[in-house]
Design a protein around this nucleic acid. Structure first.
Length: 573
RNA sequence: CGGGGUGUGGCGCAGUCUGGUAGCGCGCAUGCUUUGGGAGCAUGAUGUCGGAGGUUCAAAUCCUCUCACCCCGACCA
């Protein structure tokens, strides 16, 4: 491809709207242009990258036995009402009415549609297992779109759905997809870390996320992993081994009301009472689908609202406001405690079980209790892990390793759905024994556009993008330094034509620009291999090969330039 | 939705406080020179200053409303 025949509008300056390096580089390199918040044009270079990722995904899905189909973007509300997600997903969904006033939405995922599809067709256990997938644009009305393609309102996704007769079958299908995912991302040129994820609004019995680890702000997700075993989980999901309850053996002391004027926060209370925050219990008052719930965790811990929400099977969960707290506890914010709370469900973190003689709010402004103990001073039924994991804690699986954390971009996810959707929508089959059973499902996503940007976030330097070879828009980029030198132009085009004949995807910068401009743009758009034809080299009948990734510059006789370029291109990745 | 911020040629920005006939850099067009890391000179084109209403002799600038976008948070199938 000649540069002048393509459409590659590079920018000299960073666009004001972009925050993330990958977003800036994709804008500056002429890969994407914004249409409106979270919605982008994909320009020719980007289109090529997306097609390459898509091809890799398609090949690996097909190899794994999945069948490609296309489902509609437009969904009727009825299907979503049937699964119960019309209310759960709520505002995330792009919704509107048609001319008849019927509710419709744009699909953000296709569990409902595909379950409805197979319910008429997969009727016998003999037809299983099946796996159907599509690669298609998706819509999600994100509260706050940001970071370019990382969190868009419209994006391209591969979504696959497996259908099995039982949990064993699901496990097999699931593992097949997990294997395929590792192959996909490996072929795209980067490592991913598979971590345990939250099932969220998907529901179901288990989930994993595939994260590209990045050392920049581009890592939206935080993960925790063990430094000894293979435990890894998202921050929403991560747990740790609770080994240290060194207060266990303390004899019980008498509960006492103490005056703690203006000590509202954990920091203020611990400073005032001169005690470690581990001795405190935080009581957080939530409104859960309108009902008050008090969540208790140790003073030095952070609450994990996802865990709490999942445990309570809640749709909406929000911290109570000051007025509500006053009404329910009789005290200002900062003095809530479990003792004497009436008609409020207590959800207690597991770590609290072994604690003795701790400090809580007294439900009286400016007072706390010390030496509180359960079940003497209060009782509860709900005891569950509702705290955030922290670096430095022990691994919950091997109990030996220490938890570390990283930031990453989620490029894929897998869910064991079980029978949630098949039951709701009535997708049943007849088993060997003649009994009707719900289909056991899994769902599997890969963000195509997000993967492209994650690659840029992962592979770049101060001069621009450094594409992994398998997803680069072109393989080799040819530059001649002086367009008024006919010899240079002819030599460059000879190389160009020869490489094209060898089946290489070549971009030649045939613009009437000075060398500096071409070099800068070449660095920016990030094609793996560059061939430079210039006056310097032509004097002694050579040209240069530059490897984008290493910066290595190799002088090669013109007669051998093509075979050498092919060889080096083959070797780099 | 809450908090903060920005809208001025294609892009990046100044001008707004203190009202007085819209500017800079890049890019674009033409010509000449130049030609290995974002060239120089000359000439030129491109703006309803996000939109609506108001105040005023006069509004990019002040007031009211509104829209869009960006950042932080909640959300994220």
């Amino acid at each position: 491809m000649r540069w002048t025949n393509s459409y590659i509008p590079t920018l000299r300056e960073d666009p004001a709207e972009a925050e993330l390096i990958s977003h800036k580089l994709l804008m500056r390199g002429g890969y994407i242009r914004k249409v409106t918040a979270g919605v982008y044009n994909y320009l020719p270079l980007m289109q090529r990258v997306l097609l390459k990722i898509t091809r890799i995904v398609r090949e690996e899905m097909d190899k794994a036995g999945a069948l490609e189909i296309t489902m509609p973007v437009l969904h009727p509300a009825e299907l979503w009402q049937a699964s119960g997600r019309w209310d759960v997903v709520g505002k995330e969904q792009m919704r509107f009415k048609d001319r008849h006033g019927r509710d419709l939405c744009l699909g953000g995922t296709h569990e409902e549609v595909i379950t409805d599809l197979v319910k008429g067709e997969l009727k016998s256990y003999r037809q299983f297992p099946k796996n159907l997938y599509q690669i298609q644009v998706k819509f999600r009305d994100e509260i706050r779109p940001r970071f370019g393609l990382i969190r868009g309102r419209e994006f391209i996704m591969k979504d696959a759905y497996s259908f099995d007769v039982d949990e064993d079958g699901l496990d097999k299908s699931y593992n097949k997809m997990v294997d395929a995912y590792f192959k996909v991302f490996d072929r795209c040129g980067f490592n991913v870390r598979k971590v345990e994820g939250d099932t969220g609004a998907m529901g179901g019995t288990g989930a994993h996320e595939f994260m590209v680890i990045v050392d920049t702000q581009g890592g939206e997700g935080v993960i925790y992993y063990c430094d000894k075993c293979d435990y890894a989980a998202t921050d929403e999901r991560a747990e740790f081994y609770e080994s240290s309850n060194d207060t266990k053996i303390e004899p019980l002391k008498e509960k006492e009301l103490v005056h703690t004027p203006n000590a509202k926060t954990i920091a203020e209370v611990t400073a005032f009472l001169n005690t470690p925050s581990k001795k405190l219990i935080k009581t957080l008052l939530y409104l859960v689908d309108g009902e008050p719930v008090a969540a208790l965790i140790r003073g030095d811990r952070m609450i994990n609202e996802i865990k709490l929400k999942n445990y309570l099977k809640a749709n909406e969960l929000e911290l109570a406001d000051a007025d509500t707290i006053m009404r329910l506890t009789g005290a200002e914010v900062g003095f809530t405690g479990p003792c004497g709370l009436k008609n409020i469900r207590l959800v207690v973190d597991t770590e609290i079980y072994g604690m003795r003689n701790f400090i809580t709010g007294a439900n009286k402004t400016n007072y706390h209790f010390i030496n509180v103990n359960h079940p003497r001073d209060f009782t509860f039924e709900d005891i569950i892990d509702i705290k955030m994991a922290e670096e430095g804690e022990r691994c919950p699986r091997c109990k030996q390793g220490i938890l570390k954390s990283d930031r990453g971009i989620e490029v894929g996810n897998t869910f064991k759905l079980g029978t949630k959707y098949s039951q709701a929508i009535g997708a049943k089959f007849i088993d060997k024994d003649g009994k009707e059973k719900p289909i056991v499902m899994g769902s599997y996503g890969i963000g195509i556009t997000r993967t492209a940007q994650a690659a840029v976030e992962r592979f770049h330097d101060k001069n621009g993008i450094i594409w992994p070879k398998p997803i680069a828009p072109y393989g080799i980029h040819i530059i001649y330094t002086n367009s008024s030198d006919k010899n240079q132009v002819e030599t460059a085009f000879d190389i160009y034509n020869e490489l094209k004949e060898k089946g290489i995807e070549v971009l030649i910068d045939d613009r009437d620009e000075r060398a500096g401009v071409k070099f800068k743009d070449a660095d920016l758009i990030g094609i793996p291999l560059r061939i430079v034809v210039g006056e310097r080299g032509l004097k002694d009948k050579t040209a240069e090969i530059k490897i984008r990734k290493s910066g290595e510059n190799i002088k090669i006789p013109l007669a051998e330039i093509v075979p050498n370029a092919l060889k080096i291109y083959e070797e780099i990745c």
